[in-house]
């Protein structure tokens, strides 16, 4: 009897967990499915979940009307550009703090993390004014600079925590064997740090891809990445349900794929290391 109860309880929990999972996934699934419907079918009285006539016309329309690939390309340039630059700067900082720790290293780290929690609005006015004067408004370069600045603390922190996992004994052994700093870094550290670098880069790509505060406020048409593109789509075209879904699906598709493989990095980064 007791065993039956245990199985019953477990079954109940499983059903509830899957039910909640479905509930959470519905808005995403809904968006993706709607993007393949015609406008009439998207608001049709009788709901067809899968048995509608699939169409790509929304995607073609979105591309034709607002040049999706232009914004997609902007997103790619901004996220990869800022990740590359950010990694170079952050790797140096993290390397220095992880392998040459000083008394105040921990304090510097927590201070860096605290800066990531600051509301971006605190810096919006000065940055807007500086960008206006330097002609950086609505430019990809300007956004890359901003993205590096806002995500640098999290990159340094992530890399630091990965570097910390590299056993110092290996480094000491190499120094015993007479390896200089340069060969120590290139031959021993680099291969061991690669997974950490990769994870940090991945997290940063996602963060930048999703960033909307700065992209909305600093870009217009030219440099607007996908996040700003979606925002512009959502207001004046409210009646075009299916096309908006297509635009949204295109914007989240890369993240849906990357997100599946990078949940660990995502959680680690977004919790500021509270979860490893």
């Amino acid at each position: 009897m007791k065993i039956v109860m245990v199985y019953f309880k477990k079954g109940l929990v499983t059903v509830a967990a899957w039910g909640l999972g479905l509930l959470i996934f519905v808005p995403i699934l809904w968006t993706v499915l709607t993007s393949f419907k015609t406008e009439e079918e998207a608001v049709a009285p009788n709901l067809h979940i899968l048995n509608f006539s699939w169409t790509l016309e929304n995607y073609i329309e979105v591309q034709a009307r607002s040049d999706y690939f232009h914004h997609f390309w902007n997103s790619v340039v901004i996220s990869f550009g800022s990740t590359a630059i950010g990694l170079v700067i952050a790797v140096m900082a993290a390397w220095a703090m992880a392998f040459f720790p000083r008394r105040n290293t921990k304090d510097i780290l927590s201070w860096m993390l605290s800066t990531k929690m600051m509301p971006a609005v605190g810096a919006l006015i000065p940055i807007f004014l500086i960008f206006r004067d330097l002609n950086l408004l609505d430019s990809k370069m300007g956004l890359i600079i901003i993205m590096v600045l806002i995500n640098l603390p999290i990159m340094v922190w992530m890399l630091y925590s990965y570097f910390k996992e590299i056993p110092l004994a290996i480094l000491e052994a190499s120094r015993m064997d007479g390896a200089g700093l340069w060969s120590e870094v290139t031959l021993i550290l680099a291969p061991m740090a690669l997974p950490g670098l990769f994870s940090t880069g991945l997290l940063n790509l996602i963060l930048v891809w999703n960033e909307a505060f700065w992209t909305l406020n600093l870009t217009a048409a030219d440099a607007a990445p996908l996040s700003a593109f979606i925002a512009s789509y959502s207001s004046p075209e409210e009646l075009f349900y299916a096309k908006l879904s297509a635009a949204s699906t295109l914007a989240i598709a890369p993240i849906l794929i990357i997100g599946w493989f990078s949940q660990k990095q995502l959680v680690r980064g977004l919790t500021f290391g509270a979860v490893k």
Binding site: P27, A231, S234, Q263
Partner: peptide, 22 residues
């Protein structure tokens, strides 16, 4: 299930906000 639970956080607020709007 875990990645499914996590998906919303990985997506841009702009996109999810738009989806919720309609």
């Amino acid at each position: 299930l875990r990645p499914i639970y996590l998906y919303p956080m990985a997506l841009s607020f702009i996109v999810t906000g738009t989806a919720w709007k309609w």
